[in-house]
Write a protein that binds this DNA or RNA. Structure first.
Lengths: 201, 201
DNA sequence: CGTACGGTTGAGTCCAATCAAGCAGCGTGG
DNA sequence: CCACGCTGCTTGATTGGACTCAACCGTACG
């Protein structure tokens, strides 16, 4: 099934009806406050499962960033598959455990890291290849806007922009275009992201 | 198995060897940055499973707040149990899904809520009974210190203290002692926690 | 060509952090 | 018993990092 860019296919608060597996493109997952403040809780890339959420209501909304491909199951179908293939259940459990680890890392970022550290962490995470065995690419494309990045990192677009500019002037990264990033000094970027004391520049 | 207050029984970065089920007391789960900044990712109460984390290293540390009772399994034992009782796997999956929902809620709190909203959300979460069917108690005990609360909410102890004091002077709560909380105006507290515009006081 | 959108940059403000002091409870030991 | 140190909590004064408000730029597009 294909989802057009900008289309919301899971709505926070609605009763969950389907279970999804992302097979192509990037999805943003987010929660809203009544006055419009938004927190993006993650970006789902191919391989990601969506709609595990138990209970009466979806805990988040999901919206296609680009054209997205998903496999969609009804929840009854999911139950049937789970009953027939216990291995799939194990796979889901592994996936949920990995998501939990990522969520905890993000809580550390949101609760305790500075703007610089948040942006550095984000860029390194984006530089990570899909398959762990591949080498991390030095150059990559950001499919999301500055607004998305800000809402993911708990910052404003202005702060994200300023921070990226500063990382550029300090030669840690290069920005051939706003959406293209080149990692120039992975070591210092990792030190920053990891929260090591900042040495004098 | 019993764990003494202050004792760390899961260490971030170590190879996971055991799987735990909390049966009594409260546990704090946290991550550290190299310079000592701490983010508490959650408090585990009875019923909580710990050590699902797959992979080479624990994603967080776990430390007993009070005297804690846990059931401990070796990971090989866990694997055997999972193979013999698929129902247990389903239970773990449900538990992981619930934790994910809580983690996303916490990301919203850390990324987008003000100090007042964070403290209000925290107090209401603490006021929630263990069994969903029970009525929420109006008065309850906080087993953790202000430092713990601050590190959970991404604030400082001073800000937590000031915010609690202000909620008290505004008659939303009462504090018979620093660790005892009485919810006086649940409605306004919930409006605050939910992020509704603040009306003039 | 005009408009809209995403991004960058500047000036000023503010909320929470930092620095600092003081208080209360509590176990210890002279 | 009480002085002492320690820990946890509160409160005050000040600072600062990120937010807000605002202007501007470049590109895409009808």
């Amino acid at each position: 099934m294909e989802v057009a860019p900008g289309e919301t296919f899971i709505e926070e608060g609605e009763t969950p009806e389907h279970f999804f597996n992302v097979t192509g493109g990037t999805v943003r997952l987010y929660k809203l406050l009544p006055d419009g403040r938004r927190q993006i809780t993650g970006f789902a890339r191919p391989g990601h499962f969506l709609g595990l959420a138990v209970g009466e209501a979806n805990a988040f909304s999901a919206e296609a960033l680009e054209t997205v491909r998903v496999c969609r199951f009804s929840r009854s179908r999911l139950r049937a598959v789970l009953d027939d293939f216990p291995a799939f259940e194990r796979r889901l459990l592994r996936s949920a455990a990995n998501e939990l680890v990522a969520a905890q890392e993000q809580m550390l970022l949101l609760g305790r890291k500075t703007a610089r550290e948040r942006v550095a962490s984000f860029l390194l995470a984006q530089a990570r290849p899909l398959r762990a065995c591949d080498p991390p690419p030095g150059r990559f494309h950001l499919p999301m806007t500055r607004t998305d990045i800000a809402d993911y990192l708990g910052l404003t677009i202005e702060t994200v922009s300023r921070t990226m500019t500063r990382l550029r002037t300090e030669k840690l990264i290069a920005l051939p275009s706003p959406a293209e990033v080149v990692v120039l000094d992975r070591g210092r970027l990792e030190a920053l992201a990891g929260g090591f004391e900042e040495e004098r520049i």
